[in-house]
Amino acid sequence: MLWFLLALLLLVIAATYFLFRVEDLSHLDDPHQPFRGGPPSDEHRYVLGRIRELGQSSRGLRGKARLQALRTHMDALSDGLTLESEFRPVSHPRGEWVIAPGVDTRRRALYIHGGAWAAGSPKSHRAITDRFSRIANAAVFAVDYRLMPEHRYMDGVRDCRKAYRWLLENGPDGESPASYLLIAGDSAGGSHTLGLLGWIKHKGLRQADAAVALCPSTDLTLTAPSNRANIQTDPLLGPAFGGLSKVPLPVIWWATLAAFRVSPLSPVASPLRGDLHNLPPVLIHASDSEMLLDNARRYAAKARAEGSPVTLHTWSGMVHVWHIFVPKLPEAEEAFEDIQAFLQEAKSDQSANEARAAQS
């Protein structure tokens, strides 16, 4: 029996070494990234209170009941907000159009919500999609992709890919080609956003004109320093995922493979591990206090090293995806002003490149 257990252990070790040859990306870490803004505003206390409510909404519950409570609470984040946009449901692909008054519907944006691939919806993120429609002068399609655990991880990925293909030729008023395409997402949706850019390039489709990833997950190997160093300073992800710091990384990798049915080394689940050359302009936001800070840092550093125009802006002391608390939180307003400036600059750069190409 002892020999059998020893042989089994050696087999597991060998399989782990073979399946999970994790490249060391610590050379991409840059602790000197400048931060935006000063100490958090007084309104940040309101945000922290909303996050405590999120935790309390599922206290004492287990399994499906806990997950449903979290989903219900997230959907309520948009309740009571004064939003300018029209929200128009769509069945195929599933999601909703978010159309601010007077926007050019030939300009389109795909928004992919966060929620750890298991929660969130177009409704929960209406504060964000309403603002994106306004600042991008575009009709936003918020895709309602399939969530885990009822569905496989790849089902959600396929929904996002299908939505992008559809947006190329369809707008709020029917079939028509898009004149402009933006992809944006937060957290888990930020991961899907960055992964989608690589898939579009691989498939030879028309690439997005720009992309925005808010506090994205970029690497499911969890090897970045902030995954552990920022547990105590992240009031949202720390309580939910901080316990993983006590689990050996190889165990986490096997568990990820079992739950996602995708290797944590796959660029589909970990965009950082993919080919990042020849990407469109990308803006990434992160907070210095969140667990995913170094996910953002590493992605931006690697993409820039491979020649892609990826910009990272970090805020000090903000909660994970603080953007969802616009307009209550001043720092969220500042973040959207920054996004608008990025989109305008990307448009100007594109126009200049097109003018040079026409002259040559």
Rank of each mutant, 00 (worst) to 15 (best):
Ser124Lys: 07
Arg106Met: 07
Met148Leu: 14
Pro101Gln: 07
Gly80Gln: 01
Asp104Phe: 03
Pro122Asp: 04
Tyr111Asp: 13
Ala118Asn: 11
His73Ser: 13
Trp97Ile: 01
Ser187Ile: 08
Pro122His: 00
Asp159Ser: 01
Thr105Tyr: 05
Ser121Pro: 05
Gly189Leu: 05
Ala142Val: 02
His151Glu: 02
Ile128Ala: 07
Trp97Lys: 02
Tyr145Gly: 06
Ser78Arg: 03
Pro122Glu: 06
Lys123Leu: 14
Ser85Lys: 08
Met154Cys: 01
Glu175Ser: 15
Gly190Arg: 04
Leu147Ile: 05
Gly102Trp: 06
Arg152Asn: 10
Glu96Trp: 06
Ile112Ala: 03
Gly114His: 08
Val103Gln: 02
Met74Ile: 05
His113Ala: 06
Gly171Phe: 12
Gln68Leu: 12
Ala136Val: 05
Ala138Cys: 05
Ile112Tyr: 02
His73Leu: 05
Asn170Phe: 13
Ala138Gly: 11
Asp130Gly: 06
Ser191Gly: 14
Glu175Trp: 07
Ser176Phe: 04
Arg131Tyr: 05
Leu67Trp: 10
Gly114Tyr: 07
Arg158His: 12
Gln68Ser: 09
Ser133Cys: 09
Ala69Phe: 04
Ala127Arg: 10
Val140Glu: 02
Arg94Tyr: 01
Ala118Val: 15
Trp117Gln: 03
Met148Thr: 08
His125Cys: 03
Tyr145His: 13
Asp186Asn: 15
Glu169Phe: 06
Gly185Tyr: 09
Pro89Asp: 03
Pro177Ala: 12
Asp130Tyr: 06
Arg107Tyr: 07
Pro177Lys: 15
His73Asp: 10
Arg106His: 12
Ile112Ser: 03
Ile135Trp: 01
Pro93Glu: 07
Leu77Asp: 09
